[in-house]
Design a protein around this nucleic acid. Structure first.
Length: 460
RNA sequence: GGCCGGAUGGCAGAGUGGUCAUGCAGCGGACUGCAACUCCGUGAACGCCGGUUCGAUUCCGACUCCGGCCUCCA
């Protein structure tokens, strides 16, 4: 039985889909005006792992993740770059896909773009206007009337009155109430725009998700996820729009991953303290990032630093070392490790515990190599299957261990030449020369491992 | 000010009302020409003050500190 922490209730709840055996999940994706940073990577990886496990449990999952390709920041950035918004968003979408494939994610079933759902968005705004939940202000923008929706604030435990006190931003004169937000924004001269009953313009940020999720999954679906900074106002506003428009419950389980921090501060665009996925991929194998994300529970904050990446890398090396030169059986009987792994994952996707099970399995595998060789391939197979649920250990061990740091260094042939020379020296009992070679390679980050079968190496 | 979430061994990070997390680092041992890998063993923790309890790191309350949201941000 799967338990999920629901932001809406603040509790772990037993998961029960609306339609037995089927799950609809909508995750808020990125606004594509810049490269993905590590915070985006976390959200994408978290929900990838969640989707894998939901499927593993046998549910027929439909996983939707949108792309926001109309927005003020996109317009601004495109202007700065002197390119069209479309050229900018297309470039960034391609870059995102590249990053994500490198990180080992499986793609969502569908990635709807806001620009492809204009009619649905306009229709929903029209309904809200008709029902009195929206109005066109003096500025020409259409606003949502927050005070009219009695449950406004239910996701964040907030009351409209309380929010006034803390309002830090100057209220636009055209709004009836400070908490009102834009559904349709009037275009300025030269901006990308679509025709609407309220004049040429573009959708507000929140309405696109209400329209796309409803359009892809229906007006009431199981899971809605996103990053921690989307809880308010984005998801609160989505609830208000959707439930006012349809008169029905919108989403049963709201899920939010934790923040990635740098120096104990949230990594964010506005603080400018972000590292792009590309920055990190220049220094580490992408799986190292994935391991870092998955080694904590998805809701906990993660501290990002070179040191945390380095530690993740060392941990992964241990896992891969166990699979090195190890045959993997085609089939196996699941052991207690599978059960423990699955139980951890069923408890709100506790990947930290699931990963610890992987390490215990590895110890068992390492022991089996000498103590019960017939078991080893089966344990190796089990390890690979479980790790794959987290999107880990999909690479060839040799590849991971010998290329894990992408940097200039000794070529493989140069390394092999030295290893051959050392083998001769050892045969001649010239251990001084042998150690000299090993030390020299160690200085270059190459660690040698002697065994009966010969010498292998790992690049650190 | 309002609303959330934290505080665990040297570091990272789970979890539990009374026996094990796990990884890295440390220490002892096995293996090795010496190492490394691996294995075995081992020390080490639950912010502070009260309360409940036979017993609390785990439950309850106060306090201190930290983070997030309240404005665009995964």
């Amino acid at each position: 039985m799967l338990k999920i922490y629901n932001t809406l209730t603040g509790k772990k709840e037993i998961f029960k889909p609306i339609v037995e055996g089927k799950v609809g999940m909508y995750v808020c994706g990125n606004t594509v005006y810049d490269f993905c940073h590590i915070g985006h990577a976390r959200a994408m990886i978290s929900f990838d792992v969640i989707s894998r496990f939901i499927r593993h449990l046998g549910y027929d999952l439909t996983y939707i993740r949108n792309i926001t390709d109309v927005d003020d920041k996109i317009i601004k950035r495109a202007e700065e770059n002197n390119e069209s918004t479309q050229a900018l968003t297309e470039r960034m979408i391609a870059a995102q896909r590249e990053d994500e494939l490198a990180l080992g994610n499986k793609m969502p079933d569908r990635e709807p773009k806001a620009t492809e759902f204009m009619q649905e968005i306009i229709d929903m705004v029209s309904i809200l206007v008709e029902k009195g939940f929206a109005y066109q202000g003096a500025s020409g923008d259409v606003y949502y009337r927050a005070a009219k929706f009695k449950d406004y604030g239910k996701l964040n435990n907030r009351k409209l009155e309380d929010m006034l006190a803390g309002a830090r931003i100057e209220v636009e004169a055209a709004k009836e109430h400070p908490a009102d937000f834009v559904l349709w924004k009037r275009a300025k001269e030269g901006e990308v725009a679509w025709d609407s009953p309220w004049g040429k313009g573009r959708p507000g940020w929140h309405i696109e998700c209400s329209a796309m999720s409803t359009s892809c999954l229906g007006s009431h679906f199981d899971i809605h996820g996103g990053g921690p900074d989307l809880k308010f106002p984005h998801h609160e506003n989505e609830i208000a729009q959707s439930e006012a428009a349809t008169g029905k419950d919108y989403v049963n389980y709201w899920m939010h991953c934790g923040a990635v921090r740098v120096n104990n501060e949230k990594m964010s665009k506005s603080l400018g303290n972000f590292f792009t996925v590309r920055d990190v991929l220049a220094k580490f194998n992408p799986e190292v990032i994935r391991y870092l994300m998955v080694s904590s529970q998805y809701r906990s904050p993660i501290d990002y630093s070179d040191q945390s990446l380095q530690e993740a890398k060392v941990a992964l090396e241990r896992l891969y070392t166990a699979l090195r030169q190890q045959s993997v059986a085609d089939s196996y009987e699941p052991t207690e490790f599978t059960e423990r792994f699955e139980n951890a994952m069923k408890d709100d996707f506790n990947t930290a515990v699931a990963v610890s099970v992987l390490f215990e399995l590895v110890r068992e595998l390492n022991k089996a190599k000498t103590e019960s060789p017939a078991m080893a391939p089966k344990l190796a197979a089990e390890l690979r299957v479980l790790a794959d649920l987290l999107g880990l250990l999909g690479q060839e061990p040799e590849y991971f261990l010998q290329n894990s740091t992408i940097s200039e260094g000794l070529s493989e042939t140069a390394i092999q030449t030295l290893i051959d020379e050392r083998a001769q020296a050892r045969k001649d009992k010239n251990f001084a020369r042998s150690d000299e070679i090993r030390d020299e390679l160690a200085r270059q980050g190459i660690e040698l491992l002697d065994s009966r079968e010969g010498t292998t190496w790992t690049r650190h």
